[in-house]
Amino acid sequence: MKQYAADYTPQEMLVAAGSRQLEDNKVIFAGTGLPMVGITLAQLTHAPGIIPVFEAGAVGSSLTRGLPLSVGDSRTSCKAHYMQGLSSAFELTQRGFIDIGFIGGAEIDPYGNLNSTMMGCFPEEYQKPKVRLPGSGGAGDMACSCTNTIIIMAHEPRRFAPRLNYYTSMGYFDGKPGARKAAGLQGNGPARVITTKALMGFDEETKRMKILATMPGETVASVQDMTGFPLLVDDNVYEFEPPTVEEIGLIREVIDPLGYFVKKTLKSS
């Protein structure tokens, strides 16, 4: 019988929810940070056969030497099946061998397009942003070519915008039928958006973001209140199960004991 944790942070809920979306024996391209934590948690619980792929070229790693601080960290090579380099890793996406691209972003729109380039201005003011973000890295390519993508991010109104400041990684463009294919993209697009408040998917016809489940303590109304555009709501929306004692123990004691990516306590207001 599952034992649910009584004490956990929104970030820990986010990682647990992300981990549960990953199926066993799938090939998953790992983004930096929380996606790496989620993949490792899945490997240690319900999906030991996951094959992670890292941008620097490691394939099939087991992160038993500690959590990498980036996708180029030497620890991504621990127990890897092989290593060939960046070009080889992205060749796998272009040849259709990557089931899921697991990525994050700073800003998202109703159609799953992501911004990780800049905030506080629009493209016509590209040289004068208020905030310059890290940029695409490999996320733009992953969004183009992986069979599907899963997006993991914090849920705040400023991050969920009707119009992005910059289009870094493409989702469903403007939602029109065939938009991805017309642009030459081979992947199917985003399948899930996992946030600190909800699990969301996309409507089959309109490609607009849709609430599938609310996180513990949240409601459809509270999720919508923290979103900068109207959300669709699934007919069978449910409450997501909280993290288990096992999941929280693994995150805090085994995967990220120093709290590089997952904070153990909430910031004081």
Rank of each mutant, 00 (worst) to 15 (best):
Tyr8Asp: 03
Tyr8Ala: 07
Pro10Trp: 00
Pro10Glu: 00
Gln21Phe: 06
Gln21Ala: 13
Asp24Asn: 15
Phe29His: 02
Thr32Pro: 02
Gly38Thr: 07
Ile39Val: 13
Gln43Gly: 02
Leu44Glu: 07
His46Cys: 09
Ala47Lys: 08
Pro52Val: 04
Pro52Ile: 01
Phe54Ser: 07
Phe54Cys: 08
Ser62Arg: 15
Ser62Gly: 10
Thr64Asn: 11
Thr64Ile: 11
Ser70Asn: 08
Val71Asp: 11
Val71Met: 11
Ser77Asn: 07
Met83His: 14
Gln84Asn: 14
Glu91Ile: 03
Phe97Ile: 03
Gly101Leu: 03
Phe102Gly: 02
Glu107Val: 08
Ser116Ile: 00
Met119Gly: 07
Pro134Met: 11
Ser136Asn: 12
Gly137Met: 04
Gly140Leu: 00
Ala143Thr: 01
Thr149Asn: 13
Ile150Phe: 13
Ile150Tyr: 14
Ile151Arg: 01
Ile151Asp: 00
Ala154Thr: 14
Met170Tyr: 13
Lys176Pro: 00
Ala179Glu: 14
Gly184Pro: 09
Gln186Val: 10
Gln186Asn: 06
Gly189Met: 03
Arg192Ser: 06
Ile194Tyr: 02
Ala198Arg: 00
Pro216Leu: 12
Gly217Val: 06
Gly217Lys: 02
Thr219Arg: 06
Thr219Ala: 10
Val223Pro: 08
Phe229Ala: 07
Phe229Glu: 04
Leu231Asn: 02
Leu232Thr: 03
Leu250Val: 12
Val254Ala: 06
Lys264Ser: 09
Thr265Pro: 00
Leu266Trp: 00
Leu266Gln: 00
Lys267Gln: 05
